[in-house]
Nucleic acid binder design. Structure first.
Lengths: 157, 157
DNA sequence: CATATAAGTCAATCTGGTTTACTATATGGG
DNA sequence: CCCATATAGTAAACCAGATTGACTTATATG
């Protein structure tokens, strides 16, 4: 354990790699008709999911207040990515669902992520990529889908 | 290349691992007398550096306006982490330097990062850790010290 | 049935950021 | 040498996204 690089390199590498994936994905999305959405929206859309959700549930997943979640939903509704309908079982609640455009965004993102993963596999080989994922799983928090990163990820517009 | 996990797992793993390092480091720093600083400050302190800097230079490194950099500096000054002195060569400029406390924060951070890296080495082995760093270097942007992440990383107080 | 709890919205406020405007100092070409 | 232009820093107004608190309406439970 003599000549190891300084420890601060590791987080910078992890963040840099994360960021390059996200930037590449959003560059792709911008070309394909979604230039308005920021990296943060990936988290929001994942939190909404194809099944839909409610404002309170979304707030919990994103770890923000329900008012903040409401504002986010209102913005996305204005941009045509989600729609709100009354809940059939609870007259207080409204179900937030992705529109066709919202689902398209999610699908394009998934495709872009897959493409990037393929590029990585070609660059370092299938074996090393598998090891990379396996090693990272040991250190990433158990609940991978912690979507409370928006507070870390910047502005919405 | 048949059964590869979905591509979106990769960014989540990278971000999750990054975040676990940062959280652990700041938990450690909080215990050691620096509970007020947020993850974003690691970037800011790195951008200031032990040599010191100016507001304009800092703004460029953080990719924010010089006014925003000025506010950040004023906050850190109020908290005793930096001090401003007149530049000996330019009467317009002020040199921002870390105080003893600021340097201490930087040193404690470095130590915490090193400790985490050691834990990782023990968990996956020196070999795999070396491969991990080497693979990530291929995908992280060339300029590792891109410190314009604060806009991604959340609030200052 | 009464009361406590939950979903959503509104309004006020806070925090960081930007833009615009300004002062003071540097710098470089006539 | 001097003036035009550029640069360092600050200040004020504004903006975007978040929070807290108050409120309405509906659900759930004793």
């Amino acid at each position: 354990m003599a000549e190891r690089p300084p420890g601060y390199e590791l987080p910078l590498l992890l963040f840099g790699a994360f960021r390059s994936i996200v930037d590449a994905t959003h560059a792709d999305l911008a070309e394909r008709g979604h230039p308005d959405l920021r990296p943060i929206h990936g988290f929001v859309f994942q939190a909404i999911g194809v099944r839909g959700t409610t404002a309170v549930e979304l707030a919990a997943r994103l770890a923000v207040s329900k008012q903040a979640a409401g504002k986010t939903i209102a913005n996305l509704e204005k941009q045509g990515y989600v729609e709100r309908t009354a809940s059939p079982t609870d007259a207080r609640a409204k179900i937030v669902r992705l529109t066709v455009r919202g689902v398209e965004f999610l699908e394009l993102s998934a495709r872009a992520f897959d493409e990037i993963q393929t590029e990585w596999a070609e660059a370092i080989g299938e074996q090393r990529l598998t090891e990379l994922r396996s090693d990272l799983r040991r250190f990433a928090p158990g609940e991978l889908f912690r979507l409370d990163a928006p507070g870390w990820l910047g502005s919405e517009r």
